[in-house]
Each structure stands twice: as structure tokens, then as C-alpha cells.
Write a protein that binds this DNA or RNA. Structure first.
Lengths: 169, 169
DNA sequence: CGTGAAACCGTCGCCCC
DNA sequence: GGGGCGACGGTTTCACG
């Protein structure tokens, strides 16, 4: 269940497609060292098994006019499961909210938001988020700049672990 | 500079490729209502202009054995530009750190980290992050669950704004 | 931006190990 | 079980109108 059913070729396929999701299948096959048909079969299998959830173009938010990125730390009044779910449902409906993570610790949820400008975000903050039922507190932090934003997982770490497991047989 | 040089077709292309980055060019052309060659030319132009930064398969971290996701709030001793850059450089080299955002407010940086398990993360936390030069404080929060994680930007908002701008001519 | 053509690719059936 | 070969249909990507 923890990546154990994948062999080295599967992991290479995932790593390559994570790095370049538009690569042609023949190019991918060449890189992982098999021919195209089995390579495509593996990709389909990985997709169907849920290892690959989709493919997305990484668009530049800033260039598209989304100049504001904000992290919002949200505390709720009630942390009963029903109330958590209700809040999560709202987050899914708010387009400005791109990520909603439930955390341990002082704060209940961490939200990543984008907006075209500060006033758009402020409207959302006061009219939607802060005034939503069950929301006790909201603390926001503007992103000044982003030093790193890489998608997915570090396959280097995965390979390292596999090597350790194999040597420890 | 704020998405103003893009026409409606360009925005549709970006929205479609954000939703499905592996769509064939003919399918994309059909959806945006032009023929394939000009569609491909537009895609190339958008790529070259930086509106599209790349294409990535969205792989399932959990299924690959990365069971732990953590947000780390980092405070530095010195916020001089040189020292900020040095810290950002380290974040870029740490594979467990996937995102590094500089924030306003109490905390200097917010890091999103992934790890195969808690002990791997703890090692990274104590041996690398907390003990790095210039790091004053680190507060971490485990992600209990993720209610929403959509890539990119909300094109609905963009179209809404374009409509407002056009009606206000 | 569209059309046509050539090269390439995705995909299938079949054979092999 | 998985990988390779060959072939067909669709796609990418030119040059040109």
C-alpha cells in the first residue's frame, strides 16, 4: 500500500511525468528503457490505480493577474466532525481558496488563497470567510515572495528508501 | 502585464490545459473553437511568454509512501536580504521542502514539507532545519487531512473581471 | 487563421519470453 | 505475468494561401 507494488520502471515513469507531464509516450519509453506499448500500458495502470491523479499545466498566477497570495489560519468554534465537514465544504466552493488543510496544534485549518488584488481578498475575508458560521478566528499572512514551489514528491527520497529496504533484506 | 495581452481564446486554452495538461492539441483546438495549427501556435507562444511554466503529473503522495505532510513556520534571527537569500537557497536544496513562502507578520517563512514518516521528518527538523544558521524558531503543524488542493488559479474569477472591465469601457 | 501533406505518435493485436 | 514487433488511424507540425 506504500508504493510497494511499484517496480523501478514505474517509479521512473512517475518521476518523469511529474517533471514533464506532456512528454510523448515514446520519449517516456526511451527514458525508462522499455518500448512504447508496455510503457503506455504501465501509464494507464498507474492512472487507474490512482498513483496519477491527473495532469495540469502550471500557469503563472502573477502573469494572469493574480497578484495576491495569502495564507489564512482559521480557528473554529466547534471541532465536531460535522462542523469540520461543513467548513471544508465551504472551502471547496470558494474559488479563491486553492488549498484547505486541517492541522494539529493551535489552529484548525490552513488555507492557501489567491486573488487579483488586495481589495478582492479583503472582501472575501470579511464577507465570506470571517463571517462564516462556526469560524472563531482568522489570521492572515500575505506572501511577500515565493522562493520555492515544486509540485509533487521528491523521488530521490523514495529511491533512497528503496535502496535501504533492499540492502536490509 | 496583468493578463491584458491575452484574448478569450488564450484564456480558454490556459483553463483547459490547467484542467487537463495531457489533452491532445486537436481536442484542445476543438474546445476553444479554432483549428489545430493556430491552437498549437498559441500554446507555444503562451509557453514561451511564461504563462505556462510546465506540465506535471499530479502524483499521489500518500500512495507513494509519503504519509506525512507538515507546515513549518520559521522565524529567522536576521531578516537582512543576504540572510533571507541564504535561507531560501537552503530550502531549495532540501528535497523534503516542497514550498517556501516568505510572509509578512510574525513569522518569516512558511514551508510545506513532505516525508515518508514522522521520524524522517523529525530528523530533518532537528538536524537540518532547526539547526541551520540564522534560524531562530520553528513551529510545525502536521496536516491531519486535506480537504482541498486544486492547482493553479480560478479562471472563473478572471472571466468575471474581464467582463467587468469590458462593461466599464 | 485555415488547408493540406508528411512525419510522428498512440494504440491495438499478436507473438515471444 | 510482462515486454517487443508491426501496422493502422489519429496527431503533430510543417509550408503555404
Amino acid at each position: 500500500m506504500a508504493g510497494s507494488k511499484l517496480d523501478e520502471i514505474d517509479r521512473k515513469i512517475l518521476a518523469e511525468l511529474q517533471a514533464d507531464g506532456r512528454m510523448t509516450n515514446v520519449e517516456l519509453a526511451k527514458r525508462v528503457g522499455i518500448s512504447a506499448p508496455p510503457c503506455l500500458r504501465r501509464v494507464r495502470t498507474l492512472e487507474d490505480a490512482g498513483y496519477i491523479r491527473g495532469y495540469h499545466a502550471d500557469v503563472s498566477a502573477r502573469d494572469l493577474g493574480f497578484e495576491v497570495q495569502v495564507f489564512a489560519m482559521v480557528g473554529l468554534v466547534s471541532q465536531a466532525e460535522v462542523d469540520l465537514s461543513v467548513f471544508e465544504g465551504k472551502c471547496r466552493e470558494w474559488p479563491l481558496v486553492r488549498e484547505c488543510h486541517m492541522l494539529n496544534g493551535e489552529v484548525d485549518f490552513l488555507l492557501k488563497c489567491v486573488a487579483p488584488d488586495l481589495s478582492t481578498f479583503q472582501s472575501f475575508l470579511t464577507e465570506q470567510l470571517t463571517s462564516a458560521d462556526n469560524v472563531a478566528s482568522v489570521k492572515t499572512s500575505l506572501v511577500i515572495r515565493c522562493a520555492k514551489d515544486v509540485p509533487g514528491v521528491p523521488f530521490e527520497i523514495l529511491e533512497e528508501r528503496v535502496r535501504q529496504l533492499e540492502s536490509g533484506l
